Computed example of a mutant assay.
Amino acid sequence: MDNKSLSHTKWKCQYHIVFIPKYRKKQLYGQIKVDVREIISTLCKYKDVEIIAGAVCEDHAHLSVAIPPKISISSFMGYLKGKSTLMIYDRRPELQSKWNKAFWARGYYVETIGNITEDAVRKYINEQAEESRKEDARSTAF
């Protein structure tokens, strides 16, 4: 990925992010997986965040993203998890309980991509997605 620019800034701020549903429930499968992928993609476009690679697995989500330096990683994750929760519950109200309003767990894992290559992160995310597909196939087979 080439350096991007704002009016007075050249930048290349890339992150690998992993976040999980509340209590690490295995609920990201089937149509909800498609919905979450679409919602995350839409929200990233709203903030001009480029998704380099990503995977929604059964009990976690991986993103490799380029975030403009004017947005802090913590504010972006607050936005992403907060807005995606509202959008998920709009599409799937049955997932929301009256006592527990949170869909995502409070924390997340983030690392800058600099010491390793983009290809290594992309390969890792693809391996995680493949492993998740295998788990989905095993869980649906009788």
Rank of each mutant, 00 (worst) to 15 (best):
E50M: 06
T117F: 04
Y23Q: 05
H60S: 06
G54E: 13
R133G: 01
A61H: 03
E111S: 14
G54Q: 14
A105L: 09
T112M: 04
V49K: 03
K83N: 07
E131A: 15
L86E: 15
L86K: 14
E127C: 01
N126Q: 12
S84C: 08
S72G: 11
W11E: 04
P69A: 00
L6A: 06
G114M: 06
K83S: 07
D35C: 11
V56L: 09
K70M: 00
R138I: 04
C44S: 08
Q96P: 00
A53P: 04
I52E: 12
E131W: 01
D136N: 05
V121M: 10
R122H: 11
W99F: 13
M1T: 08
I71K: 03
I73T: 12
K33N: 12
E127H: 07
L28C: 13
A105N: 12
V56S: 10
S97E: 11
W104V: 06
W11R: 03
K98P: 13
S5D: 04
S84H: 02
D90Y: 09
K4E: 12
N3K: 09
I67G: 03
D119G: 07
H8W: 06
Y124F: 13
V65L: 05
E135K: 12
K12G: 02
I73L: 15
S7A: 12
A102R: 14
Y15C: 00
I88D: 03
R106M: 05
Y29W: 13
V65S: 02
R24G: 07
R106T: 11
S139I: 05
K25M: 14
Q31K: 13
A66W: 03
T140S: 13
K47N: 06
R106G: 15
I88W: 08
A53R: 08
M77Y: 07
I32R: 15
T9C: 11
D90M: 03
A120E: 15
D35E: 15
P93R: 08
A102S: 14
S139V: 01
V121A: 09
N100P: 01
K83Q: 14
G54T: 04
E58K: 10
K70W: 02
G114N: 13
A102N: 15
L86H: 09
T112Y: 04
S84G: 07
N115L: 13
T9L: 13
A66D: 14
S5Y: 12
Y109T: 04
K83G: 00
C44W: 08
S7V: 03
L80F: 02
E50W: 01
I71H: 12
A137G: 00
Q14V: 05
M1C: 07
K33L: 12
R122W: 03
F76L: 09
E94I: 03
G30A: 10
K45Q: 15
K98R: 14
S84V: 02
K10S: 12
V18R: 01
M77T: 00
W99S: 13
C57W: 11
V65M: 01
V49C: 05
H62T: 02
